[in-house]
Design a protein around this nucleic acid. Structure first.
Lengths: 223, 223
DNA sequence: TAGCTAACGTACTGGTTCGTACATTAGTGA
DNA sequence: TCACTAATGTACGAACCAGTACGTTAGCTA
């Protein structure tokens, strides 16, 4: 994730001017600042100050605050897509495969709270930056492809009884994983329970898998 | 919700100065403005402009932008608590009661998108306004009491096999309902499916109930 | 009806913040 | 090594915006 940290590959000595490094460093810092304070709460000056370069460079490379936020989103979604591409569950039976998928989704959400915050922020702004991006719209989702395969295998074999498609199942799984992180603070303040407490982690991880599998495999009235 | 609209009770003629009405009108407008633009994106001047009164009154009644947002949150949470108090499922069997509870939660989230946005915004700010409120922390939750009763009835009768408590079950139900509204825009932009589409409403409403009941009643390996 | 005060309006300020004009230098290819 | 340009830094401006000083009046009460 932090792509601008490493002090140049061994052999190459650190150049004073390095467009790629400067650009990546701005993205790293901007990700944290936007996630911390929201779009309007984030300060371009603050981002610049936490960088080895100046505000001028933000406008040089990205054009403005809006485009910087869009670039931050694009990279954040890129990271999750890469993680999803790692997913290999084709050797598992449908039930085990779905549980594995749920767990990977669960873990990724837990490991990237900044990503969750960025997505929440983008929703407050009606996904206007995604719409403006173009790049993000037609990025596809490896997770969705995986779900599609598992689902048809499970439905064909009669194991899965639920009448659900991949997109809706993805929404169901994401909802649980996302909410746990995104609403951690209000939920904790109102109900006195920290949903991201390390001691309860395994419990929630299991609960999600149980929930999805119970839903998919439940006995249903045949019509 | 809109408490400042009615032009005075019949008989009373409209007074020019009406503290309660002015205060309520500010809250109404502020709710919309904060929900629209986020805390930092919201403009005190804009709120004032959409009111029959002036910015001066916002500071007169609420003290400042932060306290105004806190007051907005307090009222929004008050509304949902009132709705939850209406809930009467004691005459239903545990399975029907849980489904009814899930449906009421579903409906309330759908009917109050502004509330969802306010909660999202408050989470971006680490629930600091709830923490500062005092009032909100010890407000309790009628829904939680209802869940507790249904859950123990279901568990005692052996109908519910899941080892889950009321708070976690509430989280599970809320996650689905909340995500559907809060992430509508990014989800729609990325996956091309509007989660709040009226045509799909019944489907999701049923899906939630099915999911929760399948989870609670699933056959489990006895240890 | 006189006087008191809660309720209200106007006009302004000081700090903040996005964005840019202008000047400068590191690295590179001829 | 020279010239050219991509990359960078400084300093500043103009608009915005939360908050306030100060003055006014509606409505209630004695």
């Amino acid at each position: 994730m932090t792509s601008a940290e490493e002090p140049a590959r061994p052999g190459e000595r650190e150049r004073v001017r390095d467009a790629a490094r400067t650009r990546a460093e701005i993205l790293d810092v901007a990700t944290r600042e936007f996630a911390r304070a929201g779009y309007d709460g984030a300060r371009v000056d603050e981002i610049a100050a936490r960088t080895r370069t100046t505000k001028r460079m933000i406008y040089y490379y990205f054009g403005g605050k809006e485009q910087l936020f869009t670039a931050v989103l694009e990279r954040a979604y890129g990271v999750i897509r890469e993680a999803e591409q790692e997913l290999d569950v084709d050797h598992l039976d449908p039930v085990a495969a779905i549980r594995r998928l749920a767990e990977v989704t669960f873990d990724h959400h837990e490991q990237h709270p900044d990503f969750i915050r960025l997505v929440s922020i983008e929703n407050i702004h009606d996904a206007q930056h995604i719409a403006a991006s173009g790049k993000l719209g037609r990025m596809g989702s490896p997770a969705l492809d995986v779900i599609r395969r598992i689902l048809s295998a499970g439905q064909n074999s009669g194991l899965f009884t639920a009448d659900v498609d991949a997109v809706d199942l993805h929404a169901m799984i994401s909802a649980f994983c996302f909410f746990r992180v995104s609403n951690r603070h209000t939920f904790g303040a109102l109900f006195g329970r920290d949903l991201v407490d390390a001691d309860r982690r395994e419990r929630y991880r299991t609960m999600l898998g149980d929930m999805v599998i119970a839903y998919l495999t439940a006995e249903r009235a045949t019509d």
